[in-house]
Design a protein around this nucleic acid. Structure first.
Lengths: 338, 338
DNA sequence: TTGAAAGCGTTACCAC
DNA sequence: GTGGTAACGCTTTCAA
């Protein structure tokens, strides 16, 4: 594999000159440039990104750390990120995390500016010490769907989203509204489900509606778990007439659970989800839409600006709007049961 | 940011010794090791992956080039890849390609062993010259859902899958069977849709059934395009009683198109897809299942073995099985129309 | 067991 | 304009 010296030798010039040609510096005569180019061609020479990175101190690489990157919502965000970086010539290094250990390892390893020129953290609150260290060392960091001190964040107001969903159900006339969310103690410190739940409870309280016993359930963030939860909810002597799920994935589980119980949606049971992932439009799920793609796009853009070093990235919070998308899984409660 | 020399200085040893501690060589006394470790701790020292990679000649990075990585089938394959690499300490560099230009740029850039220690190419036939060059330079390459000379491939028999789907429809009694596939001239050289189509036609021919005029359609690989196609198909004076779509994404478009036309599935129209992506089980789509996750897992494993340098990777073809998954979108054709 | 020094393939600064 | 030569931060002989 040819190196810059091979090219230099063949072209009868110094390595520095080859480097100049490579980085098209103006300080090279046309003739020399041509000779160098010919040598490069002949040798099929390609500069080593590694050596280049070491020498320049920048890896020309952007890191993305994201938990469960194959989940629909993560994929949608990544689409936005990729879109933002399209044409920027930065390589995308993906740090997938599925366990807290993995998260910690990644953060420990990225604690140098040369692993990646910048870091985008999606849907994961970085351990404060790691984040502080990163910031201290001047590594540009942007957070999407998470908050952290001293760095730009792209977020939504989950509690507000919870309110939106709940109010919609209330407006339809429901009073027996249940909630299914993630397990409260998660090892990653995710908070969105809890905040959506908080919005749910606050709205009911404001409306003077009681949260009945057993109407708030927690299960792993999976379709099947939500489905099982729904079975239990529907087996109550006073089953809910509506269920608000903390995510579309879970809402779809709820729909399956309802189907299992022989219930028709929305006639017998109303369902509201959260996120608006791709599948949701297909199944007609009423949901709180959050701009997933946009969040990635904006976060990615912010990071790109930062590594390009325009200005130090302002550590501001970009709050994206939430919106209730009424489709066909919500309706007034069945009269017979009111 | 501390370097290995800072650590060496603080511990009162040479850089080489620190390196030995880092790579836990046995040739370091316990006392020295302790001193070095303490210095590392105190300085919060982290070795530079870049410098390490340059020195060792291996980047400790695995590249994945994949077109449209956010498509459901690609995501599913990537899940398998990530699973195979889990715990291997290799970083995953993702080369997303959405245009032929992007593809070519990526291949041109990866043509050095130091961009990535190995390359997994998913669902994309690599340009033969690039592939040959990679092989010549000893870069381990594995292909998933694509074929290429001199490297291991993980594939399925798409034509056979097309036969499976078509035979199923035939067995149910359908004769008016239409096909919707990708545009024949795609810039990436994808062949799966064409081969599925070929299997479709061959099966009909073998059964002595004519492919009617206008029953074979091509559209961009998107839900909406398939939906529009379906509308046209159903507007024919002799509309099909069954549609075989070259992918689940398109099959779902077909289902939407049928719904648009006021048709009930499978009573009025049978639909068969291909892939078995996640959404398919939810909507009950009958489809030709291909082991997407497995393909990624196997391909990833093969590449890992190769970069770990056990043996030079055997350039064999791993053919994964296809299977017709009968769910609820297929039934005998409506009697009234036969 | 350890230190010194020579790479690894670039870039960038300094002379000429 | 161009060549020589330090870095860049680590690994890996080679001696000692």
């Amino acid at each position: 594999m040819a190196t810059i010296n091979d090219v230099a030798a063949r072209a009868g010039v110094g390595a520095g000159t080859v480097s100049r040609v490579l980085n098209d510096s103006p300080r090279v005569s046309a003739r020399t440039r041509a000779r160098v180019l010919a040598a490069i061609e002949a040798l099929e020479y390609r500069p080593s990104p590694l050596a280049r990175a070491l020498s320049r101190g920048r890896a020309h690489t952007l890191g993305v750390v994201v938990p469960f990157f194959t989940h629909a919502s993560a994929v949608e965000r990544l689409r936005g990120v990729v879109d933002a970086w399209h044409g920027s010539r930065y390589d995308l290094v993906l740090f997938n995390v599925e366990t807290p250990l993995q998260r910690d390892e990644h953060f420990a390893n990225i604690l140098r500016r040369d692993r990646a020129d910048g870091l985008l953290v999606v849907s994961l609150p970085p351990p404060p010490v790691d984040l502080a260290r990163l910031v201290r060392d001047g590594v540009p960091v942007v957070l999407v769907d998470a908050k952290g001190a001293g760095v730009p964040c792209v977020v939504t107001d989950d509690a507000h989203g919870g309110r939106l969903a709940t109010q919609h159900l209330l407006d339809l006339g429901h009073e027996r509204i249940a909630f299914i969310g993630d397990l409260p103690d998660n090892p990653f410190g995710f908070t969105s489900s809890a905040q959506r739940e908080q919005g749910f409870k606050a709205t009911l309280r404001d409306a003077g509606v009681n949260v009945r016993n057993g109407y708030v359930r927690h299960a792993p963030h999976e379709r099947d778990a939500a489905r099982a939860c729904t079975a239990r909810l529907l087996a109550l002597k006073q089953p809910p007439t509506a269920i608000f799920a903390a995510s579309d994935v879970q809402a779809i589980g709820v729909m399956e659970g309802a189907r299992d119980a022989g219930l028709r949606i929305p006639r017998d049971l109303s369902v509201v989800g959260f996120d608006d992932i791709e599948i949701s439009s297909y199944v007609g799920l009423t949901t709180v839409r959050q701009p997933l793609f946009q969040s990635g796009r904006i976060g990615g853009g912010l990071l790109l600006d930062a590594v390009r070093g325009a200005d130090p990235p302002a550590a501001e919070e970009h709050e994206l709007p939430l919106e209730l998308l009424e489709r066909s899984t919500t309706a007034p409660p069945p009269r017979s049961r009111t």
